[in-house]
Amino acid sequence: MILSDYLSAALLIAGAVFFLAGTLGLLRFPDVYTRLHALTKADNVGLGLMVVGLAVQAESWAAAGKLLLIWLLILLAGASVAHLVAGGALQRGILPWKR
């Protein structure tokens, strides 16, 4: 293992931790809004860490660029879809959870 392998492993594991936290939040949080929060925030960062971890191993700059592009697209789509789902839930009169 060379240095870049350790770097990749660290980034991938950190990303996996974020995915785990997001999944836990999705399963355990009380309502749709808090679940969206857990899902989008954690997945965006988690995927970003994974993408950087994989980009370290990429054979060319073009491959690394494609990975980065995937992350940017998912950031855009994830944020928009979360907004749409939350907007739809508000329209249907689902009240945000209060302690």
């Binding site: 697209l73 855009l76 789509a77 928009s80 907004h83 749409l84 907007g87």
Partner: peptide, 11 residues
């Protein structure tokens, strides 16, 4: 809505 409109225009 603004979000869907912008998203579709971008994507």
């Amino acid at each position: 809505g603004l979000v869907l409109d912008t998203l579709s225009r971008l994507l």
